[in-house]
């Protein structure tokens, strides 16, 4: 099909349109994704995450520059939050990456979260597939500015960079579970500021206290100083790119890449099931007004949500409902 061919040839317009159709859930979009799937799976996917204002976009920009020196083609997905009140969004990550705007080897696409809570958008996984099919060597996925728990990125990326900044002090303790666990590489950005050394020490001791097994990956910590010394910045971000490349090599040699790819496949099934079963059911119930009717009954305690779900699953699943699946 024409669109599929264009995307596989790297056509930006066709690819960006399909990403949009997937975001807007147009009916023809999913079958196209199905056709694209066999062309995916060859790209190296880097996740970059951290709190708002930590410098994710700036470091993404620097990573693009490093990858382009190696003549790698790069796709970037930059996620920013959707307003829960108006559904609108300001997508401003591109501002930090303007120097790559005209480079045809770089495709930057902004995504709004549209209500997703894990730091990405629902269409992010699909958008990664589209960029993979385009033949991008590396895809960088930049999450929204996150707190502690928005770690969906690990289900999509091979290597995750967690960007930290000094001055968040004691929070490092409370961040032990969640965000700190997902890092393959730490970047301490704005490392010219007070507290950077202390943060480095704390992170290092945290890593030391974790159980170590021989040959396991120990997340390196890269210090990156301010932008007013461009040479230092370029050197340090080159080091960051180097560490990420080392991590990828480690994944390949240790067999971990396979495990991560499998984890990603699990997530893909999960997402696809949701799109294939949950969404049509909800759409159907919404359109018929039944959802509203049932909500009313549950509100008045005339019926419970569990029986409702069971009854609906019986009606929509041919096998005779979720409980039936359990028994098999």
């Amino acid at each position: 099909m024409e669109t599929i061919k264009k995307i596989c040839e790297g056509n930006v317009r066709a690819a960006s349109r399909l990403i949009r159709d997937l975001e807007d859930k147009l009916p023809h979009a999913r079958p196209r994704l199905r056709q694209l799937f066999k062309h995916t799976g060859k790209s190296f996917i880097i996740g970059i995450t951290g709190s708002p204002g930590a410098g994710k976009s700036t470091l993404t920009d620097a990573l693009i520059a490093e990858l382009r020196k190696l003549s790698k083609t790069v796709g970037v997905l930059a996620v920013d939050p959707t307003s829960p009140f108006t559904g609108g969004a300001i997508l401003g990550d591109r501002v930090r990456m303007l120097r790559h705007a005209e480079d045809e080897g770089v495709f930057i696409r902004s995504l709004a979260t549209r209500g997703a809570l894990g730091g990405l958008s629902q269409a992010a996984g699909d958008a990664i597939h589209v960029m993979e099919a385009m033949g991008k060597d590396v895809i960088i996925v930049e999450t929204v500015g996150i707190g502690q728990q928005e770690i969906d990125i690990i289900n999509h990326a091979h290597s995750v960079i967690v960007v930290m900044v000094p001055g968040m002090g004691d929070e490092i303790q409370s961040m032990k579970a969640g965000i700190l666990e997902i890092a393959d590489v730490f970047a301490i950005n704005k490392a010219d500021r007070a507290g950077a050394k202390q943060l480095h020490t704390e992170l290092a001791s945290l890593l030391n206290s974790a159980p170590q097994s021989a040959g396991a990956w120990r997340p390196p910590i890269v210090m990156i100083e301010n932008l007013y010394e461009p040479l230092t910045f370029v050197e340090q971000t080159a080091e960051l790119a180097q560490k990420v490349a080392e991590h990828y090599a480690y994944l390949q040699e240790s067999g971990q890449l396979d495990k991560r790819t499998e984890r990603r496949a699990m997530m893909q099934i999960n997402d696809a099931l949701r799109a294939c079963i949950m969404e049509p059911v909800i759409d159907n119930l919404t359109a018929s007004g039944e959802l509203q009717y049932l909500a009313e009954k549950i509100k008045n305690r005339e019926i419970d949500p569990y029986s409702v779900a069971e009854e609906i699953s019986k009606r929509f699943l041919k096998s005779g409902g979720i409980n039936d699946i359990d028994k098999k």
């Binding site: 959707t82 307003s83 969004a89 303007l98 005209e102 930057i108």
Partner: peptide, 30 residues
Amino acid sequence: RCFRDAGFEVIYTGCHQTPEQIAAAAIQED
């Protein structure tokens, strides 16, 4: 900001851009 409040998704690209940069970004962002 006003477009955001109207429920649009707004790609903000800031100042000092060449028409080439603007056209490329508009296409990448569809």
